[in-house]
């Protein structure tokens, strides 16, 4: 529970990082969002046996990282949180995929290792990029950008409320576990039955609290829009150039033979 709450508290701190005024932050939020979406699409479109061709793509998150002056730790911590899930998915590949891949003339491994590694690298690319996107724009600007890109309002609001709701759940969970720990004396082990009870109470409390928060928001004139304090800068030449430069780079990485080294051909038939 502690880890989850830390991770989510960290997520909140991303909002604070988004207050910076670096070149990366000053890019129009729509452009940042679009570039990141294209990035994720390109990254996930690579064939499963591509490993080497993925490396040039790290240039994008690294460029943002250096432009935005966001501490590398802020990104790596959050990526690390996602890693166990990624490993959990990737670990099945070596077990389930057993075709042979020749690395050199003499060394060969099962194809599952290659595709497993490919999944891990692609996840690193995608999560770090999304974290940097949030850290450079912040939720209010991001929601506005989603809306400007004609995303349905209901979906945008869902996104905002889930984001808000996460903190509520964690806050309530912290209070509950603290109260429970304080009263459990020497008996530090939590029994499954207790956990189930706590989760039940947690849900009820979170829903009630969310209702109060929503009431408080409507009492302050909230009409399903997060207002922007500073208006988004209109698109400039730099924004457009930034978008197209990166799109070109992504497409080149994806298709140009120059980047096809270290991609392996699999022998044998696919199941």
């Amino acid at each position: 529970m502690k880890n989850i709450s830390n991770a989510i508290a960290n997520l909140h701190n991303l909002d604070t990082l988004a207050q910076k005024k670096t070149p990366a932050h000053l890019l129009n939020a729509k452009i940042q969002l679009l570039t990141s979406i294209f990035f994720v699409i390109v990254v996930s479109s690579f064939s499963r046996t591509f490993v080497g061709a993925l490396f040039p793509l790290f240039l994008y998150p690294l460029a943002i990282l250096s432009l935005s002056e966001i501490p590398i730790k802020a990104v790596s911590q959050r990526v690390a949180w996602a890693l166990p899930f990624v490993f959990f998915v990737a670990i099945w590949n070596p077990i389930l995929e057993t075709n042979t891949v020749h690395l050199t003339k003499n060394i060969s491994v099962s194809s599952g290792w290659i595709s497993g590694i490919s999944i891990v690298i692609r996840s690193l690319l995608a999560t770090s990029t999304i974290i940097l996107l949030v850290a450079c724009t912040g939720i209010p600007r991001l929601t506005q950008a989603l809306k400007n890109l004609k995303m349905p309002n209901t979906l945008v609001m869902l996104f905002v409320l889930i984001y808000r709701f996460l903190f509520v759940i964690v806050h309530e969970a912290e209070r509950l576990t603290r109260a429970q720990q304080l009263r459990s004396g020497k008996n530090t082990k939590t029994r499954p039955k207790q956990v189930a009870r706590i989760i039940g109470v947690l849900l009820v409390r979170s829903v009630e609290r969310s209702e109060r928060i929503h009431t408080a928001m409507t009492a302050r004139g909230f009409q399903n829009n997060l207002p922007l304090i500073e208006k988004e800068r209109p698109l400039s030449f730099i924004d457009i150039a930034w978008l197209f430069a990166w799109l070109t780079f992504f497409v080149v990485c994806r298709f140009h033979p120059m980047f096809q080294f270290l991609n392996f051909t699999i022998q044998g038939t696919h199941p």
């Binding site: 939720i139 209010p140 928060i213 408080a216 829009n225 207002p227 304090i229």
Partner: peptide
């Protein structure tokens, strides 16, 4: 009541609405 990233933005939430 408070949920925006900074105090300033939180106070601005109402009048901006």
């Amino acid at each position: 009541m408070l949920f925006m990233p900074t105090v300033f933005e939180d106070v601005a939430f109402g009048p901006a609405n």
